[in-house]
């Protein structure tokens, strides 16, 4: 039994490594289709990370919506526009941009060290472990109970937001007759 305790931790490091690798590839790949496929891989492994954190519902939704719908949109648009691979040579590092990256990195380091210093209890598993969730009726049940009580209004607003997005998409992407005539 003791010999197998390292398995979840090893899994975490393997998954994180794959996430990092694929995120770098998303940004660094020349061909947009390659980027999109690596984005799918990235999202898939992030979902695996969620599953390891006992957030099964979120993991499933992540793959279903993110990988299965949003990135498909990207792939479609790239294919329809028939984009050529980018030339990566023309990239210039301006001082301001480098500064932005440095400041962000510094911010993460500060917040992270602060978090590590002031939150000593975070390593102990909370009540959302698999056993506790099993008792409460499963991850989906727990999420739903909270979602439809405390977060009911945001939830309804989210549906309005989606409706707005649909209308906006149709209006923006529709062929403008006045432009094509002139």
């Amino acid at each position: 039994m003791e010999a197998l305790y390292f398995v979840p931790e090893m899994l975490f490091y393997v998954i994180s490594g794959l996430i990092l690798l694929s995120s770098i590839m998303v940004v660094a790949a020349r061909n947009p289709v390659t980027s999109a496929i690596f984005l799918v891989v990235d999202l898939f492994f992030v979902a695996a990370l969620y599953a390891q954190l006992d957030a099964h519902f979120t993991a499933a939704i992540q793959v279903l919506v993110y990988a299965g719908a949003i990135v498909v949109l990207f792939v479609f648009v790239i294919m329809i526009l028939n984009l050529k691979p980018d030339a990566l040579r023309g990239i210039r590092f301006s001082l301001g941009e480098a500064l932005v990256l440095l400041i962000t990195l510094a911010g993460f380091v500060i917040v992270g060290s602060e978090l590590a210093r002031t939150a000593p209890d975070l390593t102990t598993p909370g009540n959302l472990g698999s056993a506790a969730i099993e008792m409460a009726g499963g991850n989906t049940y727990v999420v739903a109970m909270r979602m439809f009580t405390a977060f009911l209004w945001p939830f309804e607003m989210a549906s309005v937001l989606i409706l707005l997005a649909i209308v906006a998409c149709v209006m923006i992407a529709k062929k403008d007759k006045r432009v094509t005539k002139s």
Partner: peptide
């Protein structure tokens, strides 16, 4: 995720 979906859809419509 909801917001990301909306953002991607509207953003891609603008790209087109």
């Amino acid at each position: 995720i909801t917001v990301a979906a909306c953002e991607a859809a509207v953003g891609l419509a603008m790209v087109i």
